[in-house]
């Protein structure tokens, strides 16, 4: 290469370098951002009991939104409210669709989801919300380390004794209580002794009229058979009955001019005399954290089960008035929610 040619090329190189450096200097500080689209996560939500929607659903959705999961954008929440017989089929359907997680509300849908994922090599994670007792019912190995594909949040366990205590405080004339139990519900076996003991321990021991019922027909039949003054109030003890027939029982009790207790304030609004039980809103909010963690890749086995033992007392003054019951003033003050 001749010196002249080389010099010419060197000049061009130098000029090019100056332009390049100027461009680099101009470009200092500029910052490019890119966004990457991610597949929409699918979460199946299931609940048994078509006569109501669990209050935890709304808080769950709201909390998920706060955590960055917006329906239709990056998450698809598939809500299924089911009749008791549909739970198993729907759970299997979710598994077939390979949803990223199943959120199961209450025992029946939780058991259905657990059965549908049992034995799977890579089971779909299940977030349970307000089961009766996750350890005792075999949902998890321990609260700290669930160990399987199920985890979630549960509320206060078995407050039937406290419900009975409040019943007596709210209804001073309460002496004999029509207690409705479903012998097929495994929970009955556990709850009944606590209930009986509580009735005996109360300052004014109560007499219990325990009747078996497994269906609407049974319930109707029992209420039809009641004689006036035979009982002073009704009590839905078994979980299955409370979950599926509270609405019906309220109607039957109203017709029989009897008060009936409920587990949640939603029923009080619909005519039950009072409710004492878990406040499901906080449980829904807490459950959203599990869905979030699972969708971000944390195995459910590593997510400890959380207990949210918040309970609330709701009373219905209108129902009380209809039944001629006058709540003690201090009880009205104690109530967390008063429907007038």
């Amino acid at each position: 290469m001749s010196i002249v040619t080389w010099s010419f090329r060197a000049s061009r190189l130098a000029i090019g370098a100056i332009i390049l450096s100027a461009a680099l200097l101009t470009g200092c500080g500029s910052n490019a951002k890119s966004s990457a689209g991610q597949p929409i996560k699918r979460v199946g939500l299931m609940h048994v009991g078509t006569d109501h929607v669990p209050p935890s659903l709304e808080t769950l959705e709201a909390r998920l939104k706060e955590l960055g999961w917006t329906q239709g954008q990056n998450i698809n929440l598939i809500w299924r409210n089911l009749e008791p017989g549909q739970a198993a089929g729907q759970a299997r359907a979710f598994v077939r669709q390979r949803v990223d997680a199943i959120v199961a509300f209450e025992d029946q849908s939780i058991y259905a989801a657990q059965d549908a994922t049992a034995g799977m090599k890579d089971p779909v994670p299940i977030v349970f919300l307000h089961p009766s007792d996750p350890v005792r019912d075999g949902l998890v190995k321990s609260l700290d380390h669930p160990g399987g594909n199920l985890t979630g949040v549960f509320g206060p366990r078995d407050v039937v004794a406290k419900q009975l205590e409040l019943y007596e405080l709210l209804v001073p004339r309460l002496h004999r209580v029509l207690t409705l139990v479903d012998p097929k519900d495994p929970a009955t076996k556990r709850l009944l002794p606590q209930y009986r003991a509580a009735a005996a321990q109360l300052p004014r021991p109560l007499q219990l009229d325990i009747r078996n019922a497994s269906s609407a027909k049974d319930l109707k039949s029992i209420f039809r058979s009641l004689h006036p003054g035979e009982v002073d109030g009704a009590f839905l003890l078994s979980n299955v009955l409370a979950l599926n027939f509270t609405s019906l029982t309220i109607r039957l009790a109203q017709r029989a001019h009897l008060p009936v207790q409920a587990r949640r304030k939603e029923w009080v609004q619909k005519g039950a005399l009072f409710s004492y039980g878990a406040d499901l809103g906080p449980i829904g909010r807490a459950g959203a954290r599990y869905v979030d963690s699972i969708l971000r890749g944390t195995p459910p086995a590593d997510l400890s089960v959380e207990e949210v033992p918040t309970v609330e007392l709701a009373i219905n003054l209108k129902t009380a008035a209809k039944l001629g019951i006058k709540f003690p003033q201090d009880m009205i003050i104690r109530a967390d929610k008063v429907y007038r």
């Binding site: 190189l13 130098a14 370098a17 100056i18 390049l20 450096s21 680099l24």
Partner: peptide, 8 residues
């Protein structure tokens, strides 16, 4: 940038 300038 300055290295490029320096080279040039």
């Amino acid at each position: 940038a300055f290295l490029t300038l320096a080279i040039a």
